[in-house]
Design a protein around this nucleic acid. Sequence first.
DNA 1: CTGTTAGCGCTTTCAG
DNA 2: CTGAAAGCGCTAACAG
Lengths: 347, 347
Amino acid sequence: MNGRDGGRRVRLRDVAAAAETSAKTVSRVINGDPRVAPETRGRVQRAVLALGYQPDPLARSLRRGTDDTIGVVVDSVADPFFASVAGQIERVALSRGISVMIASTNRDQRHERELLTRMVQRRVAGLILAPISTEHSHVSALSCPVVFVDRRPSGADSDSVVVDDADGARTAVRHLIAHGHRRIAFLGLEPELDTTRLRLDGYRAALAEAGIAPAGKPPGEPSGKLDDELVVTCDPDSEQLDAETIRLLDSADPPTAIFSPSTRCSLRVLPVLHRLGRRDVAFVGFGDLPLAESISPGVTVIDHPPDVIGRLAAERLMDRIAGKAPEPATLTVPLRLVPRGSGEVPA
Amino acid sequence: MNGRDGGRRVRLRDVAAAAETSAKTVSRVINGDPRVAPETRGRVQRAVLALGYQPDPLARSLRRGTDDTIGVVVDSVADPFFASVAGQIERVALSRGISVMIASTNRDQRHERELLTRMVQRRVAGLILAPISTEHSHVSALSCPVVFVDRRPSGADSDSVVVDDADGARTAVRHLIAHGHRRIAFLGLEPELDTTRLRLDGYRAALAEAGIAPAGKPPGEPSGKLDDELVVTCDPDSEQLDAETIRLLDSADPPTAIFSPSTRCSLRVLPVLHRLGRRDVAFVGFGDLPLAESISPGVTVIDHPPDVIGRLAAERLMDRIAGKAPEPATLTVPLRLVPRGSGEVPA
DNA sequence: CTGTTAGCGCTTTCAG
DNA sequence: CTGAAAGCGCTAACAG
């Protein structure tokens, strides 16, 4: 009926034979080359339909040196933020007939490099990367356009779609300060991440401009802490963050407010807060959460919209692939604070 | 230094030339063929390293007819459940050196077919599919192993990893009945989905065994409703579900308990409940939620573990690809009820 | 407008 | 143990 005769693969030459012409002419028809006689074109199209021919993307890519697929490399597809980013990228790509290949680095630099190499070898037409490694000279040598998301490349001559992390954090902490808080904790991403540093900068800037000095630093630091007494940086997916949160809240001079620099952190810290029944502790998180408004108090967040970021990155990459983008640029997606209650708890 | 000399692609023949041997011998070394003289092997390996050679996966797949990539086709990567499933699949695949290609159907049958065709054309070694179409004969003809997840294929001669949807729903509704509820609403997936039907069956079974007849059905049904007065089925991503929830709660003889048959529904219904301040309405959801224990009352759920499902599906597919799996089987992942408060609200 | 030839980079024959 | 030839399915280059 439709060509799947016994599972046998239909090739260009089969179509050519059926249409009584050459492979090249069929190729022309397939690729919309206008220089084919209408009559011939008709015969070919009929044969294509009759045999159910579908071009082999592998052979085509090998010959053309490029593929109609783009690669998306993020921390983890299982992370709802990146899952959503990837989903949007897919939507945009799909609407232009481009396939998407998604892969996770799991925040491993070596793995990141391997994935990129692998994708380039597959002749992807372009890449969208949430970089984990700090050094990206190898990326610019990649021979296909790359758009960075979420985190900036160190060498700033590439396209990227980011947010103003420092500003977002500053806004969050200012908000807490405006509600009377002076002891505000930062709980607490991996210090290696670019964004951690920026959000920490914003946190400190807000404190500084309010004349709040970072608390004195004891000399011998346990691992997982930075200088500041109220700053914790550790893997937010580990229970260490729970422990640190409890320790801080139980300490002699505890924080009255918490700034959580990422959704992953919030998902750790909020349950601790609720388990302890500490509704008196103010909370602002970086990144929105499902059910944020159904918790009481509602969770105040800096909205960090994955769908916008994904869409912009995808559109940018499409333009680049089409050769349309004029020069590398950094798109900064605006952030806004969404007050829901937890950030407005008074000191 | 490491072969990326001027971005030029290093081919097998370049290595052969450097090692003063033939392309085929280099190919043998690359593929671990033992029938190469140790001395030759050494020379080749040195040349590979010196030139930074990496085999071209495209050319290799074209020639071999198979690729070391598997395809994952789910409703949407942006859906946290499937994102998590995909993440686990990726982990397992990766540990065996297999790449993963993820794509979303967006619950479109035609699109599902296109994606599958596309992936098969790319010679994927296997597929993991959360089927949306109800008829899957075309899938079994796909010429590569397929493992179904979440929803069963209609022709049951394939591998699949599912949960006992009816049983999970029955357990949930029994739990509510045990707490004294007799008017229990079902709110409310798309009726087209296989799983909706099964979960609805379980819901009805639990009611039936408790001697609770489905409420009388008015003759003229507005769209989005099934027969039963307390059953709503509609797209859970639309605001229609909010409206239906409010309507039911405001009706003359309102439900005292709600069974939400999926996480997507829960994320719609719970905010409505909280907005209305209806802490008196009992709630059990199918599928766990982030922050479920931080809401008050804590959200009672049937845990529907995406990581287990993903891992099992991936392992099953790997076995199949390796030719190890004996015969098609349906793996049923056990479900358990996690009481957290909302399901224990008395009638 | 159409066809032939060559070759993308690799691996499978099949001979040495 | 090694290599030459052929070809996976397609398209670029160059004729006609």
